[in-house]
Amino acid sequence: MTSRVVLVSAAMSTSLRQARFDDGGSLDDGGLAEARSAAGTLPAAARVLLSPSVRCRQTAAALGLHGVPAAELAGLDVGRWRGRALDEVGAAEPEAVGRWLTDPDCAPHGGESVRELCERVAGRLAKARELEGRTLAVVEPDVVRAAVVAALGLPAAVFWRLDVQPLTLTELSGRAGRWNLRLGRPPTG
């Protein structure tokens, strides 16, 4: 049996455009319009899952998808940095940000570490491997990064070196104990 997982990264939001840690805000007008224009272009799926964030739920709705929120697909918990701009946090806590960006076990913000996120998402991928049919998941960019790290057995230290564009598809197909990867295609067919 071949398992297929298509990860759709959330459309553009104001916080993403401003390099701000997600604050639970909505998609911006451009992101909403782009997602609406991509409605009907995604492959059929046996199930649709969502990161529980506002922007993922709005992206799914704009794409015409009805999904189930999955807590294990939530974005990285950045604790007290939530809603703050990366530049602002970097100026106030340069050593903490430096450690966070280089040590996957570090969580100076009081949230979760990159390694913890990667392990959480890896657990969800293991469940997907057991399911028949395609799983479509609208998720945060950091969840896509964590899925790629897990699927390819990469060290968690490469997490920040993976760039995920808004409203792109990352496709995983797995069988015989391994995943294959197709990165970053737009949702246009």
Rank of each mutant, 00 (worst) to 15 (best):
G123P: 05
L73F: 12
E88F: 13
A60Y: 01
H66T: 02
G123A: 01
H66N: 03
A46S: 15
L76N: 03
G123T: 05
R80T: 09
G75P: 05
A74D: 05
R80W: 11
L101F: 10
L125H: 07
P94R: 13
A71D: 15
E95P: 03
H109E: 10
V78I: 14
V78C: 14
E116K: 03
E112H: 05
A122T: 11
R124G: 12
A91I: 10
E93W: 10
A62W: 01
P94K: 08
G110H: 15
A71R: 12
G110T: 12
R47M: 01
A92E: 12
D105G: 15
R80P: 06
A122F: 07
A91H: 14
V97D: 00
W100C: 08
W81Q: 11
A92T: 05
G83T: 09
L125S: 05
A61C: 07
K127D: 06
A122V: 04
V121M: 11
C56R: 00
G90C: 14
V68E: 12
L73R: 05
E72T: 13
A122H: 03
G83A: 10
W81Y: 04
V68L: 04
V68R: 11
L117T: 08
G67S: 04
R55N: 06
A71H: 08
T102F: 05
G83Q: 05
L125R: 08
V68A: 13
P52F: 05
A74W: 00
G110V: 09
G64L: 00
P69L: 01
E72A: 07
K127I: 10
G98V: 12
E93P: 07
L65K: 01
A91P: 13
A92Q: 14
R47V: 12
C118I: 14
T102N: 03
V97N: 04
